[in-house]
């Protein structure tokens, strides 16, 4: 389904470090992303996975090392690396279609084009009929759909997602996960998805990067091998799914066992 053979990475991190008030938050991250890949960043709280996402988004600058997007160092945020937030971060004063078309508004595109984009993206994420609603009239799951549509409308090369489904109920979360995989297949967009849920990572990702829980331990990487279509709910019961979940769980527990007090 994806072009793993593509030799040119869309993003490369080389010995990337980030320190906050002299405390290392992220140390020595080296990896690369291929175009079209769905990569999950997995790890316990405080391991720096959101920090890594914020570095890719351009909200933070590396303390050390290199982080290059399409061969050039990242200098700030931009629509080529647009972000879906856990909080949604929707603009409460704008309708669904105005939220979705925000990038077009910034580029001063005409109203007809913004409307057209709003309608098209609302349909893509299953929100047709809600274009003129305001965010406060939507459920948590619907808000996250708007967040995804708003990013897709900006035409990103990478869609960055920071625990976007952490605050919605389990049933909604599973539906959203399945729809995200459909959207990924339909758009071919590269996705970097931060989560602390092993199940979520295994279900969604082509590749999982497990961040070390403390400095000194290693990064781990897993390639997920589940049958197509990836959005099939049965994949959650597939032997490969169960096996990989166990592997990663043991790995993470071992990491935790090394910490004094655990």
């Amino acid at each position: 389904m994806h072009r793993y053979g593509s030799p040119v990475p869309i993003l490369t991190a080389n010995r990337l470090c980030f320190r906050y008030q002299d405390q290392p938050v992220l140390s020595d991250a080296s990896f690369s992303l291929e175009a079209g890949e769905f990569v999950c960043l997995l790890g316990p709280s405080g391991c720096g996975k959101t920090t890594l996402l914020n570095l890719i988004a351009g909200f933070l600058m590396p303390s050390d090392g290199e982080l290059a997007f399409e061969g050039r160092p990242i200098t700030g945020p931009g629509p080529d690396r647009a972000v879906v937030f856990q909080s949604g971060a929707l603009f409460d004063w704008m309708t669904v279609e105005e939220n979705i078309a925000f990038n077009l508004t910034c580029r001063k595109r005409p109203l007809a084009e913004r409307r057209e984009m709003g309608t098209r993206m609302a349909r893509l994420v299953g929100l047709q009929g809600f274009e003129r609603h305001y965010p406060y009239q939507l459920s948590g799951g619907m808000k996250q759909r708007v967040g995804v549509a708003r990013v897709l409308a900006a035409g990103p090369r990478i869609m960055l997602m920071d625990e976007p489904f952490a605050a919605v109920d389990v049933q909604t979360r599973e539906t959203l996960q399945e729809e995200l995989l459909r959207i990924h297949a339909a758009t071919g967009c590269t996705i970097v998805f931060v989560t602390h849920s092993i199940e979520e990572a295994v279900f969604l990702a082509d590749r999982i990067l497990v961040l070390p829980s403390q400095k000194g331990t290693d990064w781990k990487e897993h390639r997920v091998d589940l049958p197509a279509p990836r959005w099939a709910a049965e994949n959650r019961l597939h032997p490969s799914f169960v096996a990989m979940r166990e592997t990663i769980y043991r790995e993470l527990r071992k990491g935790l066992a090394d910490v004094p007090g655990h």
Binding site: F59, P77, A82, V83, F85, C106, A154
Partner: peptide, 15 residues
């Protein structure tokens, strides 16, 4: 103002 709102706008291409 929620910091996430500002980050969202910047990330979506706002000047």
């Amino acid at each position: 103002v929620r910091p996430d709102s500002i980050r969202a706008a910047l990330s979506l291409g706002a000047s």
